[in-house]
Every structure is written in C-alpha cells, then in structure tokens.
Design a protein around this nucleic acid. Structure first.
Length: 1069
RNA sequence: GGGCGAUUAGCUCAGCUGGCUAGAGCGUCUCGCUUACACCGAGGAUGUCACAGGUUCGAGUCCUGUAUCGCCCACCA
C-alpha cells in the first residue's frame, strides 16, 4: 500500500468492478422490502454540474445505507430529452436559424445523434461520482417505453375531459418560435419610455404604443373621480382628479367642467385619431384599472396582454391581432405594419408626436419577459394550444369520487401523503398550487413527444385507439414432449387437448379471426380452435419462432430454466433482426380487430417486449423472466393510430415536463402491471434541487396520483443550490464555477461527496470552495493511512480468526471504550440517516474516525496491541463509512479482506455494546492527558522531555491505574503515580479534573503560576456567582426541572471546592 | 407588490421541541518531521449570537418591530 492514497488510480477501477457484476442490479423477485429512488434525469444536452453531484451524493448515501440495512434498493437512472434546450443547441450546431430550414425527420435524427453523444458523457460523469445505480434499467424520457406511457396518460386525461384545446394567452417566444410555460419565462429589468397621449378626450398611458392602433374600449375605474376639463380652444380632457391635480401643465390650460365617477362616463362613443389613423372608441368601466396609476384610463390590447385578455373575455370585447407570430405588426398597424415590435413601438411614439397626440413621454421602470433559452423577447399572444385543466372536476377512478387535479395536489401534502424536507417548502408548494393556472402542454417544436391527436377535414379530434390483442400458446408439440429445441414438429395428443382447452377459454371473447405462424404446431392449434369457434385462420409466416439452427434438434433435457439463445450467431436471427420482425408484426396486428394469435413462446415474448421498448439489450432479461403456460390467454394492449380519411396528426409536441412528470412510474413499466411496477412503486424518496419543485416535483405528484392512484413517493428531499465559498451562485459568467470532473480529478470523488454533503442543510445553499474540498481529501487520506496501519499490525498475525467473536469480547479498557463509542455512533448515524440528517451523520462519522479512532484508539494500540481486535473493528468502521465514502472504503475492504466480496453487500453496523464505566474511565484518562499536554505547552517544555506526574485520584485510583502505561506514552511521562491522596510535590503545577488533583512536575516559575491561578480563580468566581444567582432565585428552584436544579447545585459545590483548592495554592506560593 | 429565509469566531456555516461555561471546518498563532498519515501530531487565541422591545426562573433558541442581505412568486397599462 502506498503512503498517500491515489484516488485517480483506484476509483475508476472500483466502479468498473461493480459494473462487471450485477451488484447494482435490483432483484425484482427478492423478498426484501423495496426502497426506490428515481434519479432525477439530467438534461441530455448539458453536462454534469455540482448540483448534479450534490444530488448524486445524497441519493447514493441513502441508497447504500438502505441497501446495507436489508432493503432491496432500486436507484433508477436515466436522462431527459430537454426539448427546447436540445433543439436550440442542435439548431446552433447546424447553423440553422429555424428548424423549418430542414426536413422534420432529418432534424429529429440530428437531435437523436446529438443526444446520443451527450448521453454517453453524462453517464460517464455520473459513474465518476460512484453512484450505485441500476444501469440495467436505465431509461430515457423520450424512448418508446416512455412514449407509450405518455400517450396512455394523454388519452386518459382527454377522456376525463382534463385536456382541452383553446385559445389562450400564451407566452410566445419569437426566437424559439414556440410557446413557453409561465415558468420558462425570465424577466429583465428595464427602463422603458412611458407615453401619455390623447385618445379623443382621454389621456391614455402606455409603454406599448404599437398596440394602440385599433378599435377598442377606453377603460376607466367605476368609482374613481374623473374630471372633464376644457381648454381655450375647446379641447376636452378626461383624466382622474388625482392626475389633474398633480399636473400643473394641465391645470394651466384646462378648466374643470365637472367631476364624475368613472361609471358616469360609460357609453360614450367617439372616433379618435391614432398613430395608424382614425379609429372608433367607446368607454367602459372596470375595476381592473388602478386609478392611482398613470392617467387613470387605458385602452386595452386583448390579444397581447394577459390582463386585457382576461377583461376581454369577461366583458365580451373583440380580439384583434396586432402582432403576428413572427413578432411583426399586422396590417392593422397601418404605417407600422410589417415592422418588428420594438421598431414599431418607437415609430408609433414618433407618429404620436408628429400628429400632436403626445402629451408627455417619460422613463418608466418595467420588466420585460424573455425566453429562458433563446433570450429573445416573449410576446403574450393568443394561440390555439392544448391545456391541462387543473380545476375541472372529474371522477377519480381509484376512489370513485369527484375531485380536481389541483385538489389532489393539495391533498398530497396537506394529508401527509408526502413530506417535504425542509418543511418550509410546503408553504412554497401550497402557494404555488393555490395560484396554479391551467398548464399549457403543447409546444411548437419538433424534438419531443408528438401530441397524440389527429384531425380530420372537419377539425374533428381523433385519439389513438386502445386494442387488446389476445394470444394463446400453441399446444404441446412432439419437440416439446421430447424437450428438443427447434425444428417443425406436429402436436402430440396432449397438444390437441391443449388446443381444445384454448377454444373453450376463448369462446365468449368474440374472436373473429385466428392468426398463426406457418409452423405445424401453431397452424394445427389454430385450425382446431378455429373449427370450434367457426372463424377463419390466417397464416403469418413472420409469427414463427426464432430460428435456432445452432440449437436445432438438441435436447434440452438437462438444462435448468430457459435455454440461453446465442443471439450473436450469424446463422440465427440476432437481436436486431428479432426486434425488427417483432415491430413489423405489431404494426400489422394494430390494424386487426378481435383476433386471437396462436403464438410461439419466445417470439411472443418479443412481441410483448418490443411493443413497448426498442431496447434490444433489455429483451434478454425480459425473455428470461417470461413465463407462459399452455392454455393461458394473454392480452397485449396497444395504442393504434386512429384510422380515417385524411387524418393529420397535430404538428406540435408536448412540454418536456409532461414526460418527466411520469418518471417515477413510466420508468417501472407503467401502464403495464410489470413486476417492477408492482414491487418498486410507489417509490420512496424524490431528491432534487428546490429550483424545480414546481416544474417537476409538483407535476409528478399530480400525474402520479391521477394515473396510478398513488402518490409517487412519500418524501421529497430538496438539496440546496451549490454556490462558491462566498455564497455566490456558481455561473459561467461569474467564472466561479467548478467543473465536477476537474475537482474529482484533483481530490477524488469521495472528498467531493463529503464536501457536498457535510455542512449542507436541505434547501440552503451548499458552499463549496477549494479549502473545504481539500480538507475532506485529507480525511480520505487519513482513512487510507489508518488502513495501512491496520494492515501493518496484521503482518505477524495468523490469518484465521472469527471477527464477530472478537468484537463480542473486547479485552482492554480502550477496546471497551471504543466499542462503546462505536455502538453509540453507529446507532446515532442510523437515526440521523433515517431522519435525512445527512450532514450531521457525515459529520459524526468524520469526527469519530479522525478524533476518536485515529487520534486515541490507534495510539493506544501502539502500546497495548491487539491486532485482531483492531482489524475487526476497522472493518466495522469501513461499513459505517461506506455510504458516505464508497471508494476509499471499498478499496480498503478489498486490501484487508481476503474474501472476494463488496462492502455494499455487508450489513450496516448494528453492534450493541455498552460499558459506561469503561467509557467514564477512558474519558477521564483523555482529560488528564489533555491537561498534562496543556501544562506542557504552557510551560513551553520540550515535547521530547519526559516529565513526572502524581495524581490524587480518590475513588478512581484503582480504575485509573489500568491506564498508566497508555498515559505515560500519550502524555510522554517518565512516571505516573496514582494514589487516592497524593501530596503536592515541591516544584509542580496543579490541575483539577472532577475533583482530582493532578500534579505535574515542572520547572517552577512563581510569577507565571500566580498569574495562571489568578486568571483561573477569576473565571471560577464569575461562574460561581452565576450559579449562586440561579440558586437563590426562588422561581428557578420552584419551576425548573429537579434534575437541573440538582445539577446546578452539584456544579456550585464542585466549583467552590475547586476555588478553595486554588486559593490555598495561591497563598502557599 | 406578495411570500419565504438568513443575520452566531477573520471566512464558510452547525446549533432539533428554550437549560450554553455557544460549537465545527478552514484560516491564524506556538511547539514538534514521535516508524499509519506533514494531505500529520500536540496545544492556544478569537464571539454584547444584527438591533430594539417582550414572554420566561432562564432566550442564540419563542413572540413583536426595525435594519441589512438572499431567494421565490406575481407582474401592472
């Protein structure tokens, strides 16, 4: 073993070792209690940042801890297709301005290629952190399994009336040419020009001059006071009284004719000049107006402002489109038609001035909505979109009760189905839900799940059709009976019986046709069933069993379980061939209605698998778990595209978060009742950054409850955002970002994990700097060296001994003390981890290992050797620390433990050992040693010089006597004399511990000693007066708990005796 | 504008339901290359717990207000 630990050399090798076995694969058939965490899928576009690293660290600790405490854990990895983000990056990559410059399919294949490359980098980075993920179940939000779940849930929502299409005010990203969800909009502070201009007699205030060009109402407040004023030329002016009073310029020219409430103005109609020519206006009153703002009157742009739109809907006002989706003005804008919005705004302002309509122009702070991805302006626009209604009632299929999605989301937390850590985020959650509006789920981009809706010529809506294709297995063939593989053999007598049984089972299902392969056993079975049911038989050769020339004719007599197909043998079909054949068959079957397929075992398995997934690798496991008894009818549910003349699928795709929202269950095979889903759903913990609690967490809760009837997890753990050591957010622009891979390279993944976990409280920023990281690297190195020490001690020890037995029989005082402490610490760590107090648990392990095990126990072992015990207890420490620092512990485990096993397969320490007396004595010894060291440092003694000590130990004399040898070494003493009552040697310093007097022989310095004593006396007196004050307070004696009062009394007497001794000491100087 | 949170040692932060003589890491100072480790060991110093009130026998911890700083939500013609 090297002196310094080389993380770079070992971490990758260890992860590779884990990957080579199936140690990270969850066993669905296990009897253990499941514990599941769905990994929040990182965007496939990006790369790992420290936020991901923090997430991985926390989840890995939970998973490893749970696995070591007897759970069947599943930590399911995957990636997210990040629709808008990916499209933007790919567009940039290809040098395109808009996706329309390219064919849709070609563009998608570019996206796929790009996502594939990034995916590999992301998974590499994840593995670098040591994440104990089940890669065999890896998923992707945009693969065909997830697509099936997406379509399924969409259909269900649609049928429950929860998905609606409507013209709504949406956030239109001109740059991305797509709608954005409310929370995808970013706001920039800005100083805009605020115009006050004449609209007939009204002064109107606006920033958006370009929209003030069409017939619309002037809105006033119904109860606010308005003045009607007239100037010398007879020009009329209507503004709020407040505004009039505030404007000297108005008062100079205009004289009040009357003061009326806004309501009185309603109904006035007039034609007024606008920048685009004369237009018709009329007056309405509405409380939407803030009479204190601007002139107290506005015109509305119902098509381009959410508030105005809401008003227009309410008051049935016309909707006039003034801006198109390219972000330019429509014809209605007259002189500004065709101009981009920004330009038109400026030009309209100029026109107002030219026409003498402008009253005042002044700077006005406002905020501009921007696209979070493309950075371009977001225009509120009216557009037909798909929405999920969160407030519409529907009947919950699981309870039969009426509810709404919003209510289900609220109940999740209110009724404690889901706990959010830290708790204060529950308030944030509720605040968001309470104000939740319908969720716009359609996006005008290509990279995403296509909306599963088709339109016919009359704009009628068609959804995919659910079909249940029935399957029965052919009857027993001669090959089956003889357990021979391959070949084409007819049915046996049993097989004929089987066929009749199928006919009986299927009789009432309304089958219209039977489809089978051209193999004898299939065809024969089909004919028998067909004859019974009186339906035709159709032969599809592509339904045949896998070709298996390699195995054909070979006996399967002595094989256990399903035989292994050699998919890579060229003369056979390989996995890709099978996948292709299966998918073609499925597409063909989707066009059939009410059919029974007489199938072959393996190929039918392929049909079931590939109807959901395109993953060939996963089929190998699927097939090995596939069971299908003779006579058993199986139904395969598929969604078939609707049929009809001229049907066109919606061109839009779904918001990325739609598929992400299904993550906890779509990854487990839902909507099928797969073994994974049955075993691992609902999952346990959802751990993520608090920045996506709304985007993602809330929506998972919504869909989970709605689609599966169960909330998808019971705990939400929100880690903080990683920031630098000054509490600044890490960002590229600030240049304070740390690349996880670089830092791992520098200090190792274990140290990075510790840095991200210790000192981090959920929901609060996680500060991370070089100093912190290198501190934890030192800790890892410390563990390494402790391991080296253990190994060195082991050299002259015979290798065979019973670790468990040794741990049950500690011999020396220090061993008993350590075991006692270890038992305390491991219990406490368990408790903390159960409560998600990960930081505190980590801290406790850190200090136990360093301060107690290394600094004290290892030192005692140098004097009082017991290598077998040392070794045994060290292995336990490795187990304890493993969830936190998996690499170093695994490394040491394999160095020290000859048995070929992984640490993760061991049980988490559950050692119960109690010996309070040993603990007391050892602690006493520690205090004595520390005090002696203190005296030594104070007196500036050379650490090498041995000194002599006498201890007046009273009742502890006998027990302490056992520690003499250890004490001598640790405090570097020439000799120690422990008696019940020792007399003070001439030249010595005295310290008091628990009433015991420790005399340390030192070169005597009266003035220094006096100073020291005086200082100590002063501080003692202070604390005595405090204690006395408390005890003379009657209410304290009466009201404080008894043990506290007693404790205070004890402290007082202790302090007083100590004071007494010190004063005697002082006078004797 | 609404909400949430923070304010504790030079720095970054712990401190759960009130009992603290207020802790940790880093930094700093003194001494030491003692054969696991200098990525180390031993020891020291440093705090009106933002401010002002209140509740209480007792407040860093609970309540009210003020100030400063973060974050989130809503978006105002």
């Amino acid at each position: 073993m090297q002196k310094n630990y080389d993380h770079n050399g070992s971490e990758d090798a260890i992860y590779a070792k884990w990957e080579k076995t199936d140690v990270m694969t969850a066993d669905v058939s296990s009897n253990k209690k499941p514990y599941t965490i769905p990994l929040p899928p990182p965007n496939v576009t990006g790369q790992l940042h420290l936020g991901h690293a923090a997430m991985l660290a926390v989840e890995d600790i939970l998973i490893r801890y749970k696995k070591m405490t007897g759970h069947e854990t599943l930590w399911l990895p995957g990636t997210d297709h990040a629709a808008i983000a990916t499209e933007n990056v790919v567009l940039k990559h290809l040098g395109l301005k808009t996706r329309e410059e390219m064919d849709r399919e070609d563009f998608l294949s570019e996206c796929r290629k790009f996502a594939g490359e990034k995916h590999d980098r992301i998974t590499h980075q994840i593995k670098k952190m040591g994440a104990h993920l089940d890669w065999s179940r890896e998923a992707y939000t945009f693969d065909s399994e997830r697509n099936f779940a997406v379509n399924w849930v969409f259909k269900k929502l649609y049928e429950d009336g929860l998905i609606v299409r409507g013209h709504r005010m949406i956030n239109w990203s001109v740059g991305a040419q797509s709608v954005l969800a409310d929370d995808e909009v970013e706001w920039d502070d800005n100083i805009a020009d605020f115009y006050e201009f004449w609209c007939g007699p009204f002064l109107i205030g606006t920033v958006r001059t370009e929209t003030k060009c069409a017939d619309s109402p002037v809105v006033v407040h119904p109860t606010a006071e308005y003045v009607r004023a007239i100037n010398a030329t007879g020009k009329e002016c209507i503004v709020t009284k407040k505004y009039y009073d505030a404007h000297t310029e108005l008062r100079k020219d205009f004289n009040i004719q009357e003061v009326v409430p806004g309501e009185a103005l309603v109904g006035q109609e007039f034609t007024a000049e606008t920048y685009a020519g004369p237009r018709k206006f009329w007056v309405i009153a509405d409380e939407i107006i803030d009479p204190a703002f601007g002139t107290g009157a506005m015109t509305i742009s119902a098509s381009h402002s959410p508030d105005d739109f809401e008003l227009a809907q309410r008051r049935d006002l016309p909707l006039i489109q003034k801006i198109d989706f390219a972000g330019t003005m429509t014809d209605i804008a007259g002189p500004c038609a065709g101009m981009p919005v920004q330009e038109a705004r400026k030009r309209a302002g100029e026109l107002l001035e030219e026409k003498g309509l402008l009253f005042e122009k002044r700077p006005h702070p406002n905020r501009v909505p921007k696209c979070y991805r493309s950075g371009t302006i977001v225009e509120p626009m009216l557009s037909p979109q798909w929405f999920i209604s969160v407030e519409k009632e529907f009947i919950d299929e699981f309870t039969g009760k009426k509810t709404t999605l919003k209510k289900q989301m609220q109940e999740a937390v209110r009724e404690n189905h889901i706990k959010i850590i830290p708790q204060r985020f529950e308030k944030v959650y509720f605040q968001w839900i309470d104000n939740l509006r319908d969720w716009c789920i359609s996006r005008q981009i290509w990279w995403g799940h296509r909306i599963p809706v088709w339109y016919d010529k009359n704009e009628n809506i068609h959804l995919p059709v659910e079909k249940n294709i029935l399957f029965a297995r052919h009857g027993e063939s001669e090959a089956n009976a003889k357990k021979i593989l391959g070949g084409d053999y007819p049915l046996t007598d049993n097989g004929l019986q089987d066929a009749r049984k199928i006919a009986e089972n299927i009789r009432k299902k309304g089958i219209k046709k039977i489809i089978c392969s051209n193999l004898k056993r299939g065809h024969q079975t089909a004919e028998i069933v067909a004859a019974e049911l009186n339906v035709p038989v159709e032969v599809w050769p592509e339904l045949a069993e896998f070709t298996s020339s390699e195995l054909a004719g070979k006996a399967n007599l002595h094989r256990e379980g399903p035989f292994e197909i050699q998919f890579d043998k060229t003369e056979d079909e390989d996995l890709i061939d099978i996948s292709r054949r299966a998918q073609n068959v499925i597409e063909r079957l989707k066009k059939e209605d009410d059919v029974l397929v007489i199938g072959h075992k393996n190929f039918t398995a392929a049909l079931f698998h590939f109807s959901r997934s395109e993953d060939e690798e996963k089929f190998v496991r699927f097939r090995s778990e596939w069971k299908w008894e003779k006579g058993e009818i199986r139904a395969l549910t598929v969604l078939a595209d609707p049929v009809g003349e001229g049907l066109q699928q919606d061109k839009d795709t779904l918001d990325t978060w739609f598929s992400s929202a299904l993550w906890p269950f779509s990854t487990l095979g839902w909507p099928d009742k797969t073994p994974d889903f049955e075993k691992f759903y609902p999952t346990d913990v959802l751990e993520t950054g608090h920045d996506i609690i709304f985007f993602w967490v809330a929506r998972m809760i919504m869909f989970g409850r709605y689609a599966t009837g169960k909330y998808p997890f019971h705990t939400v753990y929100l880690h903080g955002l990683v920031c630098d050591e000054n509490g600044q957010k890490m960002s590229k622009s600030k240049g304070n970002g740390i690349d996880p891979l670089e830092i791992i390279e520098e200090v190792g993944a274990d140290a990075v994990r510790l840095s991200l976990v210790i000192g981090a409280t959920p929901g609060n920023p996680i500060p991370l700097g070089k100093a912190k990281v290198s501190g934890y690297r030192n800790f890892v190195n410390k563990m390494w060296n402790a391991g080296r020490f253990v190994q060195m001690q082991l050299e002259d020890v015979d290798s065979e001994f019973d670790v468990e037995k040794i741990l049950k029989n500690p011999t020396s005082l220090s061993e008993k003390w350590l075991l006692h402490r270890f038992s305390e610490v491991s219990t406490s760590v368990s408790q903390k981890l159960e409560k998600y107090e990960i930081s505190s648990a980590g801290d406790e392990i850190y200090h136990f290992v360093w301060d107690e095990f290394c600094s004290w126990f290892l030192e005692t072992q140098k004097i009082d050797r017991n290598p077998k015990f040392l070794y045994s207890v060290f292995l336990e420490i490795l187990k304890l620390a493993h969830p936190l620092v998996p690499f170093i512990t695994e490394n040491l485990w394999s160095e020290l433990n000859p048995k070929n096993s992984f640490l993760i397969e061991q049980n988490f320490p559950d050692l119960k050992f109690k010996d309070t007396e040993s603990k007391r004595i050892f602690t006493l010894m520690q205090e004595i040693v520390t005090e002696i060291r203190k005296v030594r440092a104070e007196k500036k003694l050379n650490p090498k010089d041995k000194i002599s000590v006498k201890i007046s130990a009273g009742k502890n004399a006998d027990s302490l006597d056992k520690t003499v040898e250890v004490m001598k070494v640790l405090a570097n003493l020439s000799d120690v004399e422990i008696t019940e009552k020792a007399s003070k040697p001439e030249r010595s310093a005295m310290v008091l511990i628990n009433g015991m007097e420790i005399f340390v022989e030192v070169p005597f310095d009266a003035t220094a000693e006096k100073k020291r004593l005086e200082a100590e006396i002063a501080s003692l007196e202070k604390s005595i007066s405090g204690l006395k004050g408390r005890l003379t307070n009657k209410s304290y004696i009466d009201k404080a708990p008894e043990h506290l009062v007693n404790q205070t009394k004890q402290q007082l007497t202790d302090a007083e005796t100590k004071l007494d001794t010190l004063q005697k000491e002082l006078t004797s100087l």
